[in-house]
Design a protein around this nucleic acid. Structure first.
Lengths: 115, 115
DNA sequence: CCAAACTGGTTTGTGTCACAAACCGAGTAT
DNA sequence: ATACTCGGTTTGTGACACAAACCAGTTTGG
């Protein structure tokens, strides 16, 4: 018993670029492409594909429109997205606790060489 | 000015398996292969390659010996490793702050359609 | 008017890499 | 001797993050 700690991380969310995107969105409600570009430091291509992936996974919505003749992409978390990013930070906190709370057995302490 | 937030993440450390390994090691000082296997939930092959990578990067040392006729692999952080994992958690904390502290401009607010 | 440059993105090509499966050597029962 | 386990390492492969190239439209400038 007490086999495995449940510390699996959500890879979709954990990836640095996406973690930044989602975290920013969680405080801002809606942001446009250009803003995300600046705050995350990602390249355009990169940001674009991360957003597509997150949209496909249902974590955010992408709303395209034209503002002053130019295309404008607004992004916002879905409620699931909001939940997933919050859960991920919670999970990271839990993992971090391992840094101070030793688990099952510190080391399978076999004497250097018995016999 | 105030262009880019410095929120790049150390990919070597950030990868879930390695993050778990390093975090555990940071509290335990020395652990053996089998222990890490249990606590991280990684497969043997996986753990082996992550350890090799971390050793190659100088974040930990791998000490192989024979204990009671069986091979025994002890792993411990180097001081650099200790520093890198601590720095990473600090960096994650910083990123997390974005969830509560809006940066440069919430949204590049272009009026719906001026003239 | 035409072209060059800029804006706001998307698509494509490629190298990296995390993963599990297969393997391996040595020890330990049978 | 044969099979099984223990403690790992190597290998093959699919996924994917990245930047470069591209694209549609707009503004600038001559």
């Amino acid at each position: 018993m007490a086999d495995e700690l449940e510390l699996e991380l959500d890879r979709l969310v954990h990836e640095p670029g996406r973690l930044a995107i989602l975290t920013v969105l969680s405080s801002v409600r809606n942001a446009d492409f250009t803003f995300l570009l600046q705050v995350t430091g990602l390249t355009k291509g990169n940001l674009s594909s991360h957003l597509s992936k997150l949209e496909a996974a249902g974590l955010l919505t992408i709303d395209k429109s034209f503002v002053r003749k130019k295309s404008h992409t607004a992004v916002a978390l879905t409620s699931e997205g909001r939940q997933r990013i919050a859960a991920h930070w919670a999970q990271l906190d839990r993992l971090k606790q391992l840094a101070t709370a030793p688990a099952p057995a510190p080391t399978t302490a076999p004497r250097p060489h018995d016999r």
